[in-house]
Nucleic acid binder design. Structure first.
Length: 466
RNA sequence: GUCCCCAUCGUCUAGAGGCCUAGGACACCUCCCUUUCACGGAGGCGACCGGGGUUCGAAUCCCCGUGGGGACGCCA
């Protein structure tokens, strides 16, 4: 059977890092098996869904390069289909109208909680053989509930967690259509996964408790339509924040696009996410092509994983070092422009980047570190006091004068500095450090001669003369 | 509260009963390289949650405990 997987976010916010990983695994599984990856937008919660959120999800997936083969499907556009299925269930007796009011249900829940019981529907309107149902009140619009089996257990072999067994006695008759007639999540998922021929449902493990309900509905549907088959399920454990707490809006569950803004390469984020909860022996760094080739559900960890920015940084640095220089320069120029620093043809940006890329964890850091090539640096006062001392000023003046004459190459500049150092019987850093401070603004930088070569003669002399 | 899931270095993980003196990566520390800081190179520190079983043998299987997480909506 051809593999068909899906990613089914609800558009109530941006695509966060956990959602991105779920999408990534689903995507990779389809790729690995030459299957189809489907995007489905679960927007039945009209009150919370927004077009902006849909766009944010689309943008996030595009940035990461998680392309889908089908979709996006929108559940709101499938209303007729859901209503049709609900009707067949009503006709088949696997669903029924329930007239319990919200207040009534709320009171029931509170009472059960007070009795330390698991809150659930009491089955008041559930039809049973030989049971007389109450007379429906006129002022209440009924909801429709699924008639869940009372006995037995629901069992499935979770592709990540192994065999999971949940007793039907733990489940109640869930609402599949609201009073206004709109279907609810668990029901839509079942219809969609079935209609779309999903073979592996790969999703977050907060859905484990929904799975037995969905399986029961699927089985009920399968009694009506024998072509319906159960998918396999793979429940991914969640990603925790760096503090070990659940990722949430106020707990670092940032949008994947925030990583873009913060200067992370999609390759790094992808590689990091792939490795978070999945492994291939000791392999740490790999391309998406390699990942898709290796990916399997057997090597997914069942336990929750904590997000670690330092490792992401390390990977990001790795991919920055590997990045195409021209592409990198384009990105860095844009980031500099955002800060009001405009890149000019000289000094050469790609040369400047080559000098700094090895030490940058993010593109923002990289942009920051080459900014002084295009705007006067703010000279660090402490570094200046320490390195630009009285006794060295005359040496610098002499050097500056010679700089006007020297051939403008890294080698020639280096030779000139070395010669100055020698003629004054100094140590190399004694001259290099003040140059560094005056030219770059700080005490840490790559080789100062290489920097000067890129910066240009006039600007170098200008900075040394001020 | 009830049900479900999970448990190896600080973190991500390898580990399918003997290959484990528990391996790798990030972080951290030391040294080397060096023109400062990085990069890079070489080392180091550092873990099987606890208790019972099963077995000749357990990080690996079973049970109990503990700890963490999730679910219990006319949200998804």
């Amino acid at each position: 059977m051809t593999v068909r997987t899906r990613f089914a976010p609800s558009p109530t916010g941006f695509l966060h890092i956990g959602g991105a990983r779920t999408a990534l695994f689903s995507w990779a599984f389809a790729k690995k098996h030459g299957g189809t990856f489907i995007l489905r937008i679960e927007d039945t919660d009209v009150a919370r869904s927004t077009p902006e959120a849909v766009q944010a999800i689309l943008d996030g997936m595009q940035w990461l390069g998680l392309d889908y083969d089908e979709g996006p499907y929108y559940q709101m556009q499938r209303m007729e289909r859901y209503k049709q299925v609900i009707q067949t269930m009503l006709d088949a007796g696997s669903a029924y109208y329930c007239y319990s009011s919200r207040e009534e249900l709320e009171a029931l829940r509170e009472q059960q909680m007070a009795n330390k019981q698991k809150p659930r529907y009491d089955g008041k309107w559930r039809p049973e053989a030989g049971k007389t149902l109450p007379t429906p009140p006129k002022d209440i619009q009924p909801v429709i509930r699924f008639k869940n089996p009372v006995d037995g257990v629901v069992v499935w072999d979770d592709l990540v967690k192994g065999r999971i067994e949940i007793a039907n006695s733990e489940l109640d008759d869930l609402i599949i259509a609201r009073a206004d007639g709109t279907p609810t999540y668990n029901f839509c998922v079942v219809v969609d996964d079935s209609d779309m021929g999903i073979t592996q449902v790969i999703r977050g493990d907060d859905h484990v408790n929904n799975t037995p309900r969905q399986i029961n509905m699927l089985k009920a549907l399968a009694e009506i339509d024998t072509a319906i088959q159960l998918p396999q399920y793979a429940h991914l454990s969640m990603i925790l924040g760096s503090d070990g707490q659940k990722l949430s809006k106020r707990h670092g569950a940032v949008s994947v696009m925030q990583y873009h803004e913060d200067g992370y390469l999609p390759e790094a984020v992808l590689n990091y996410l792939a490795r978070l909860g999945w492994s291939h022996g000791d392999d740490e760094v790999f391309s998406m092509a390699q990942f898709c080739d290796w990916f399997d559900l057997n090597h997914i960890t069942a336990s929750a994983a904590q997000f670690n920015t330092e490792k992401l940084n390390w990977l990001n640095n790795h991919y920055i070092k590997l990045a195409d220089l021209t592409e990198l320069a384009k990105d860095i120029a844009a980031r500099l422009a955002q800060q009001g620093v405009h890149v000019t043809a000289t000094p050469n940006l790609t040369d400047a980047i080559s000098l700094y890329r090895d030490r940058a964890n993010t593109l923002n850091e990289l942009a920051q570190s080459v900014a002084y090539f295009y705007s006067k640096p703010q000279v660090d006062a402490e570094a200046k006091a320490k390195h630009v001392t009285e006794d060295i000023l005359s040496v610098l003046a002499g050097l500056t004068a010679q700089l006007a004459e020297v051939e403008w190459t890294t080698e020639a500049i280096h030779a000139l500095i070395a010669q100055t150092v020698a003629s004054h019987a100094l140590k190399f850093p004694k001259v290099a450090m003040p140059l560094r401070v005056l030219i770059t603004g700080g005490a840490q930088s790559p080789s100062i001669d290489a920097i000067m070569a890129i910066l240009g003669r006039d600007e170098t002399i200008a900075r040394l003369s001020s």
